[in-house]
């Protein structure tokens, strides 16, 4: 299958800070490709370079065969961008916003009106299209934010953490929308720090951390990297020090790695059942009060944990 996007050794420096350090990947036509990584990993910088907003310090990207640095206007016509922030005008209605953004993509007249109606239908806001965006809930704003990126029917859609800060119902609606768009033939580059979203949506996933692509492949390929290892997740009471518990159990036999996030300690182990007893015993010995324990099969979070020694939401 031909590639809609090819990125070769993309590098971006901001002074001494290296935001992206030599990222290479491709996206096939009709594919959903996710960049999974924690905040500050370089996902947005990568999207900004691919959407021609910033020129890379070095490296090259082509979209639809056009160079992002040499033919930015041609590239912009092929892509749709859904930025992480709600990039809309609060004092305009959803319809006015969509009309405005459509015109920025060169649409006008009856074709624009018809397409705006279609998109309003698609994002489920036709009934409230005349209300100003500032009166909308966070989830509704997110949907308009996505709609503005779909108006010109892009071949490749960039979605930069489109579900940040919204309720589960709106998140579900957005994930379904992405799947639906892909089913209609649209290729998608999706960035997230939610492992579940990457797992649900993606044909392939690139795991990014500190500006580097540390793993790339289908979910099956990636989870094979951690072998048959399972994740044992310990939830401690809010007044407990999860980091201290991670340190206490890290040296136990059978524990490959341990990391703490908020009030949870994630352990990577070949056999959760085998280490569960010693881990709980060690926790009791240290005076840690456990609230619950989960055992998870190999997943992308485990891959990230094994590759970086940190949890995705660190």
């Amino acid at each position: 299958m031909p590639s809609i996007l090819e990125a070769h050794n993309l590098v971006k420096h901001y002074g001494d800070n290296q935001a992206v350090s030599g990222i290479s990947f491709h996206i096939d036509e009709g594919e959903i490709f996710s960049l999974l990584g924690p905040n500050g990993a370089g996902k947005s910088t990568t999207i900004n370079m691919l959407s021609t907003l910033f020129a890379p310090t070095s490296g090259e990207a082509t979209i639809g065969g056009k160079s992002a640095t040499q033919h930015p206007m041609a590239v912009r016509r092929l892509i749709g961008v859904v930025p992480q922030e709600i990039a809309l005008y609060d004092d305009l209605s959803a319809r006015e916003n969509l009309n405005f953004w459509g015109r920025m993509y060169g649409m006008n007249g009856g074709a624009l009106r018809q397409r705006v109606d279609e998109v309003l239908d698609q994002i489920g806001l036709k009934d409230r299209a005349s209300e100003r965006v500032k009166t909308y809930s966070g989830g509704m704003k997110r949907r308009v934010n996505i709609g503005a990126g779909l108006l010109h029917k892009p071949r490749l859609l960039f979605m930069d953490e489109p579900t940040v800060g919204i309720d589960p119902q709106s998140r579900r609606a957005i994930l379904d929308m992405v799947t639906d768009l892909n089913r209609q033939g649209m290729s998608v580059l999706y960035t997230t720090h939610y492992m579940e979203e990457a797992q649900e949506l993606s044909d392939r996933v690139g795991i990014i951390d500190r500006g580097r692509l540390i793993a790339l492949g289908t979910q099956a390929e990636l989870t094979r990297q951690v072998g048959e290892q399972q994740t044992l997740r310990l939830h401690v009471a809010e007044d407990q020090n999860a980091e201290a518990l991670a340190t206490a159990v890290r040296a136990l036999p059978g524990v490959v790695s341990a990391s703490a996030t908020d009030h949870t300690v994630a352990l990577i182990t070949p056999s959760a059942a085998a280490v569960l007893g010693p881990v709980v015993g060690q926790a009791n010995l240290g005076g840690f009060r456990l609230r619950s324990v989960d055992i998870e099969e190999p997943n992308l979070e485990a891959v990230f944990l094994q590759l970086t020694g940190r949890a995705l939401r660190d």
Binding site: N48, S51, T52, L53, M73, R76, R77, I79, V81, P83, Q84, E85, I86, A87, L88, Y89, W101, M104, Y105, G106, A148
Partner: peptide, 14 residues
């Protein structure tokens, strides 16, 4: 700050 400027510049608008 709101990101609309970046969005404008990511559209085929110079």
């Amino acid at each position: 700050n709101a990101g609309t400027l970046a969005r404008l510049l990511a559209s085929p608008t110079s």
